[in-house]
Amino acid sequence: MKPPLRMALAASSACTLLAGCSMLNTTPAIPDDWTPRGSVSALVAFAPGGGSDRSARVVAESLNDLDADFNVNVQNREGGSGAVGWATFLAEQGNGNALLVAESALNTLPLVYDVPFTYRDFTPLVMFAEDSRMVVADADAPYETCADLVEAGRDAPVRTGSSGRTGADALVTAEFERNGGQFSVVPYGSTGEVLTALMGGQIEVAPASAASVRPYLESGDFKALCTLTPERYDDPLMGGVPTALEQGLDAEVTIWRGVLAPDGISRVQRDYWVDAILDAMDSDLYRDYIEDDLLLPADLAGEEFEDYLDDYDAQMQEVFR
């Protein structure tokens, strides 16, 4: 039985109840020439400053640069490893002026916890990037590679941090445990908190995005043990870091980043946002974001994104079974 997230979801339960009541009301048909007007919310279910928040702000700014008749505003609703924000977004059913900027924990969280949603409760619009993780340690740590971590973890658990219990960091730990290591996971609210804990000696190693650890590698505070990418990064600094696959570990982590809408929007509304987001991605801001954050560009839209989520969910069920 999955553990419930009652405390984390308590604040959003009233909103969800109200959404259910509002469904009883008859709503007018959406006109074929529908366009969003005024304020559009872009909800991100994590705290400001992390990778999800950054992606949401890039999406919002890129859409606003289209100079249409709307203004996208990012709203952070953190808590419960994403559960609070995503449960709250259920109340937006049928609202064409609401967007959700999310990532792969939207698949994995419902596999572990008893939450009132799955990814199928939202409308996929566009997957705009793929991300991965690398693993770092203090410069004086006794580990040189991720293979060293797994080997050390066969004898005693290695203390690691994680920004969320079911996100990308958790996938790294799951992959290493599948290869035979043991890990003691300390949860934190964001990648920034994980890296601060590593600096303070509270944990031994940390999985994190390549962009977030770059300054620590450049300063010499941290050393990189491996990446969880299928191939090395195409980058002067990060390109010198071997993959876990190169080190003999069957370990790879890929997460998606994308934009979804509430359930119950019309085809006209879905098509509008798909086209607008794809247009917004044709910008220097988006291209700089992909390059600076060492991401892989993606442009799966509509039904293709929906099919991807189905396949990804099947993979995650194997990981978290």
Score class of each variant (00 low, 15 high):
Gly20Leu: 06
Ser104Asp: 15
Leu106Asp: 03
Ala170Arg: 10
Pro4Arg: 14
Ile203Arg: 05
Gln202Ser: 07
Val194Glu: 03
Phe305Trp: 07
Asp271Glu: 15
Glu151Gln: 14
Ala98Asn: 08
Ser39Asp: 14
Arg270Pro: 08
Gly258Met: 05
Asp307Pro: 09
Tyr289Met: 07
Ala68Arg: 15
Gln93Thr: 02
Ala261Gln: 10
Asp313Gln: 04
Ala298Asp: 07
Thr108Gln: 03
Pro242Thr: 12
Tyr308Val: 05
Ser283Asn: 03
Asp235Ala: 05
Glu144Gly: 15
Arg57Tyr: 03
Gly302Thr: 07
Tyr216Leu: 00
Tyr308Ala: 10
Val112Pro: 01
Thr160His: 11
Lys2Val: 02
Ala141Trp: 00
Phe183Cys: 11
Met1Glu: 09
Gly180Lys: 09
Gly51Ala: 07
Ala244Cys: 09
Gly79Thr: 07
Gly49Ala: 03
Asp263Thr: 12
Gly189Glu: 14
Pro242Val: 10
Ala211Leu: 05
Arg267Thr: 14
Ala224Asp: 11
Val205Thr: 11
Ala10Gln: 11
Gln75Phe: 06
Asp311Gln: 08
Val186Ser: 06
Val59Met: 15
Met7Asp: 15
Val74Arg: 04
Phe222His: 12
Trp86Asp: 13
Phe128Asn: 14
Gly192Phe: 05
Arg133His: 13
Val213Phe: 00
Glu92His: 15
Ala105Asn: 02
Gly51Lys: 01
Leu17Pro: 06
Tyr233Glu: 04
Thr227His: 12
Val72Gly: 11
Thr254Phe: 03
Gly200Tyr: 10
Ala168Ile: 03
Leu66Arg: 04
Asp121Cys: 03
Gly220Asn: 00
Ala47Phe: 10
Pro36Ser: 14
Val259Ala: 02
Glu291Leu: 10
Glu306Tyr: 01
Asp32Pro: 08
Leu225Pro: 11
Ser266Tyr: 13
Gly200Ser: 12
Ala83Met: 02
Val84Tyr: 14
Leu106Tyr: 02
Gly50Trp: 00
Pro28Leu: 09
Gly96Ser: 11
Ser209Trp: 00
Gly189Phe: 09
Thr254Met: 08
Cys146His: 09
Thr227Pro: 13
Ala276Leu: 06
Asp235Val: 05
Gly264Cys: 07
Arg57Glu: 02
Ala168Pro: 00
Arg214Trp: 01
Ala98Val: 07
Ala19Gly: 15
Val319Gly: 04
Val172Gly: 14
Leu237Asn: 12
Thr166Trp: 03
Tyr143Arg: 00
Ala251His: 06
Val259Glu: 00
Gly96Pro: 12
Ala197Trp: 00
Lys2Met: 00
Ala129Arg: 06
Ser13Met: 13
Val253Gln: 09
Pro236Ser: 13
Leu278Asp: 10
Pro236Gln: 11
Arg165Gly: 15
Gln247Asp: 05
Leu24Gln: 03
Thr166Cys: 12
Leu285Ala: 15
Ser22Trp: 13
Leu294Gly: 03
Thr88Trp: 13
Ala19His: 09
Glu175Leu: 09
Met134Ser: 14
Ala29Trp: 09
Tyr308Ser: 09
Gly50Val: 00
Ala280Gly: 08
Val274Ile: 15
Asn76Lys: 08
Thr35Asp: 08
Ala56Phe: 08
Asn73Trp: 00
Val112Tyr: 01
Phe222Arg: 10
Arg232Ser: 07
Asp311Lys: 05
Arg54Pro: 01
Gly51Tyr: 03
Leu63Met: 10
Arg270His: 13
Asn95Asp: 11
Asp140Ser: 15
Leu245Asn: 01
Gln202Phe: 05
Val205Ile: 15
Glu231Ile: 02
